Amino acid sequence: MSEKKQPGVWDGFKAFLMRGNVVDLAVAVVIGAAFTNIVNSVVKGVINPLVGAIGTKNLDSYSSCLKSPCTGSGDNATGIRIMWGSVLGATLSFVITAAVVYFLMVLPMAKYLARVEARRKAKEGTQEVIEVTELEVLKEIRDALVAQRGTGHSQD
Score class of each variant (00 low, 15 high):
32 G>F: 09
86 S>F: 09
17 L>F: 14
73 S>L: 04
21 N>M: 07
37 N>K: 08
116 V>F: 12
78 T>W: 00
110 A>F: 13
19 R>M: 04
62 Y>G: 02
82 I>L: 13
59 L>Q: 08
74 G>W: 14
92 L>N: 00
37 N>W: 13
73 S>W: 06
52 G>E: 10
42 V>P: 00
40 N>T: 04
44 K>E: 08
70 C>F: 00
116 V>E: 09
45 G>R: 02
28 A>H: 15
108 P>D: 07
66 L>E: 10
35 F>S: 01
78 T>A: 00
12 G>N: 13
16 F>D: 04
116 V>R: 13
45 G>M: 04
78 T>C: 00
99 A>T: 12
101 V>K: 04
60 D>I: 05
62 Y>T: 03
43 V>F: 07
31 I>M: 12
45 G>Q: 03
69 P>S: 05
23 V>L: 15
40 N>F: 04
58 N>Q: 10
33 A>L: 11
17 L>D: 03
61 S>K: 07
99 A>Y: 13
58 N>F: 11
23 V>G: 04
44 K>A: 10
113 L>Q: 11
59 L>W: 10
77 A>D: 08
39 V>A: 01
98 A>L: 14
99 A>I: 10
92 L>E: 03
66 L>A: 11
45 G>S: 05
71 T>L: 13
69 P>K: 01
67 K>D: 07
62 Y>M: 14
76 N>M: 12
26 A>S: 11
70 C>G: 00
100 V>M: 14
55 G>K: 10
23 V>T: 11
57 K>N: 11
12 G>T: 03
55 G>N: 13
24 D>F: 14
17 L>T: 03
73 S>D: 06
16 F>A: 05
84 W>C: 03
48 N>M: 12
48 N>F: 07
73 S>P: 00
17 L>C: 08
35 F>P: 00
111 K>Y: 10
79 G>I: 04
82 I>F: 14
17 L>V: 08
46 V>C: 01
82 I>K: 02
34 A>D: 02
63 S>D: 08
57 K>D: 11
24 D>G: 11
79 G>N: 06
114 A>I: 01
71 T>K: 09
78 T>R: 00
109 M>K: 08
41 S>L: 07
50 L>F: 14
118 A>W: 08
87 V>L: 08
26 A>R: 02
95 V>A: 15
56 T>K: 14
78 T>V: 02
44 K>H: 05
57 K>R: 08
107 L>V: 06
25 L>M: 12
102 Y>W: 15
109 M>W: 14
80 I>V: 12
27 V>F: 15
100 V>D: 02
61 S>G: 01
83 M>Y: 13
91 T>F: 15
